[in-house]
């Protein structure tokens, strides 16, 4: 066994600490986030009034909304297909952020008793595997969520946060509600990923809901397909009051909101 201890120490000495400094400092390493489209005004003279609609129509899930010469983004629906960014002459700008989690209920924040030890039950309600995998990545040394007092727990009886990925399939409906009721109060629900927020490319259908809101009450929403680990981490920090919730407008990012920010 000692070879493992040695190799672990050796790697640490050789390459230094890999763990991100987030939330103390923003993490700008390449590839940590796929980013999100930014709303933009479309004022190009030569393409005329139809341009905004043309961009919006490229979106397969209706996340883009063209009105009055600008394109707004409903992040709940954005599935990172990049069609608005890569196709055609006009494109939507993307930004490499990850602090996307937005509190959507007035009581999204857990009490101060949960400041440094929070247990999370993750439920897969029909996820394609990507969101769940990004949740799992939180435990790798790059993100190491334990350092912030977050722990995954196998039993809902000890869980404070229910973290749901996937669009909420019909056959998981009962398991999902059972898990929530098995949790002690106070408890919060975090919906992770576009599918959990809006059904994504799957819902609504006879086998799939239009987001898990129709099954369990959601406190915090994390857009993205999949949201990168840092975005999920941000949601956990929001739940414990250690980070600012993204502006509620970020659910439906509108141009004026973005302009106000900048």
């Amino acid at each position: 066994m000692s070879q493992w201890v040695l190799s672990g120490l050796k790697a640490k000495i050789k390459t230094g600490i890999k763990t991100t400094r987030y939330p103390a400092r923003p993490d700008r390493a390449p590839g940590v986030t796929p980013g999100l489209p930014v709303p933009r005004p479309v004022r190009s003279a030569h393409s005329g009034e139809g341009d905004a609609e043309r961009i919006a129509n490229r979106c397969p899930t209706g996340a883009l909304d063209a009105r009055e010469g600008r394109v707004d983004v409903d992040l709940r629906r954005c599935i990172h297909c990049f069609r608005c960014a890569r196709e055609g002459s006009e494109s939507m700008p993307w930004e490499g952020s990850y602090e996307w989690a937005a509190a959507v209920s007035p009581t999204a924040k857990l009490g101060h008793a949960f400041a440094s030890s929070v247990h999370i039950r993750v439920v897969d309600a029909g996820d394609c595997g990507a969101c769940l995998h990004e949740v799992k990545q939180l435990a790798n040394p790059y993100y190491n969520l334990h350092r912030l007092g977050f722990f995954f727990t196998p039993t809902p009886r000890q869980a404070d946060i229910l973290l749901v990925v996937g669009p909420g399939t019909d056959q998981m409906r009962e398991a999902l509600t059972k898990t929530l009721t098995a949790m002690p109060t106070p408890r919060r629900v975090i919906a992770v990923g576009a599918c959990a927020l809006s059904g994504g490319v799957f819902g609504p259908s006879f086998a799939c809901s239009e987001g898990i809101r129709s099954i369990v009450p959601v406190d915090i929403e994390v857009p993205g397909n999949p949201p990168p680990p840092l975005a999920i981490l941000h949601a956990l920090l929001v739940a414990t009051g250690r980070a600012q919730s993204a502006d509620s407008a970020s659910r439906t990012r509108q141009l004026d909101a973005v302009e106000r920010e900048t």
Binding site: P156, A175, K178, T179
Partner: peptide, 12 residues
């Protein structure tokens, strides 16, 4: 005091 049924892994 909440009385819930036993946790069964979510089976129906």
């Amino acid at each position: 005091v909440l009385r819930e049924t036993r946790w069964d892994g979510g089976v129906r």
